[in-house]
């Protein structure tokens, strides 16, 4: 089959195929962007559509401290520390417990275990992080993963 095909034919196949698929890709991408900016497809109906200032601050802190350098959210990031998309449900929505787990990490100095660096967050920053983690836990990811064990 390939013997009978000319180089020019292959060349047009590349350009035509590439451009067609590029348009299809962009169309799908923008359709998704539209879908995601409408409330229903993104969150469970119980959650407010607008992101609060605290959630946005939480996302900023998450990025700025390279949290995804160890943890995953929605299954993405690094696989060194525990998975955090389910942390809000694992802690049964107990905000203080989540804040404590950030505050008091590495207090005991146990050897050879994976340790989290100590961050100097203010009280309001800790609240923002918890709000952000709550927001992440409420994104509708179709009940992935099955067991809530991060």
């Amino acid at each position: 089959m390939i013997q009978t095909l000319s180089k020019e034919r292959a060349q047009s196949l590349f350009y035509v195929g590439g451009i067609l698929l590029l348009f299809l890709f962009l169309a799908l991408g923008f359709q998704t962007a539209l879908d995601l900016s409408s409330q229903k497809s993104l969150y469970d109906s119980s959650v407010d559509h607008e992101l609060s200032a605290n959630v946005i601050l939480g996302k900023t802190l998450w990025d700025k401290n390279n949290c995804s350098g160890c943890h995953t959210l929605l299954g993405e990031g690094s696989y060194f520390g525990s998975e955090l998309d389910t942390v809000f449900s694992r802690y049964q929505g107990h905000r203080e417990a989540i804040k404590d787990s950030i505050r008091f990490i590495d207090t005991y100095g146990i050897r050879e275990r994976r340790v989290m660096p100590r961050f100097k967050f203010t009280e309001s920053e800790l609240d923002a992080i918890v709000d952000f983690l709550r927001y992440a836990s409420e994104i509708n990811i179709k009940h992935w993963p099955t067991p809530i064990k991060g």
Binding site: I2, A10, Q11, F14, G17, G18, L21, L22, L24, F25
Partner: peptide, 16 residues
């Protein structure tokens, strides 16, 4: 000819 065919297959599968 091979290069163009491979490249076409890259874009057809890889983009989406």
């Amino acid at each position: 000819k091979w290069l163009y065919l491979i490249s076409a297959a890259v874009l057809v599968s890889g983009l989406i």
